[in-house]
Design a protein around this nucleic acid. Structure first.
Lengths: 138, 138
DNA sequence: AGCTACTTTATAATCATTCTAAACTACTTG
DNA sequence: CAAGTAGTTTAGAATGATTATAAAGTAGCT
């Protein structure tokens, strides 16, 4: 196994979270992967239920994902306004979003370059730039 | 009056929509303005109710806004995932979004320039580019 | 071993949005 | 103009994602 429980326990501890069974299990689903992972809570629930380990309640999944997001281990992506998507890739990067298939694809940050940034309103600072390329069948 | 009912009636007719009292009233709220207008359905409802004309039902407002969007008279903006925002500016342009105040501000399209576009996945075409600059207090 | 604060859980509650089916109305045709 | 029909509006119910609640469970400390 490339990533053992120990790593997630550390990760959780570093964020001031108790490494409970449930959190460790969720971390495994999220982070024990080759590629970065995009998901909705609903999709994540299904995966967790399939990996027939013990059931984790919906509320716990919501809590854990939001906590991980707050601690900077996940990024929330705003796309359709029906539900939230999350991304294990927390580095600055952008997305293709296919409105038909509702699929989200990462774009390497070096594939997009913004030449000119707007000046933010008075007293405000730009915290993040999110570019979404809406795509559809040719 | 800079924009009379007649204009909205034409606008609706051109989109194949019957110019009903309700639709005309909604068009007045949306388009009879100096600046472009950003709104959530909730905010729009409040404005309509305040302009004490006869009440328009929530379902009608949803229907009308979605129809206007489908016909290209409004743009939907994806920002927080809690609710939809719409914009009467349908030209290509971008936004500041203040996560604290939940305010949305237009950015003139000439204030942002994207130097390098990513190559879309096979068989797909880029239909739209949406850039959101998340801002907060300095 | 026992305490305390943090977690999990099932369930109920909330909130935006969509659906439904009945009443209504714009427009066409005779 | 009368009447039909297809498009609209409406109130209220239904849905679905998310959040709140409050009781039971657990981690980590002493």
């Amino acid at each position: 196994m490339p990533n053992s429980e120990a790593i997630y326990i550390e990760k959780l501890r570093n964020s001031g979270l108790r490494p409970t069974k449930q959190r460790i299990r969720i971390c495994e689903v999220l982070f024990n992967r080759e590629k970065t992972f995009h998901f909705s809570i609903n999709e994540l629930m299904k995966i967790i239920q399939t990996k027939n380990n013990q059931k984790i309640s919906l509320a716990t999944v919501y809590n854990t994902i939001h906590t991980l997001k707050k601690k900077g281990h996940l990024k929330e992506i705003n796309v359709g306004n029906d539900m939230s998507y999350f991304d294990t890739n927390t580095h600055s990067h952008h997305h293709f979003y296919d409105n038909q298939t509702k699929e989200l694809v990462d774009i390497n940050s070096d594939e997009v370059q913004i030449k000119k940034n707007p000046v933010p309103p008075n007293g405000k600072k730009i915290m993040d730039i999110e570019v979404t390329f809406k795509i559809s069948k040719e």
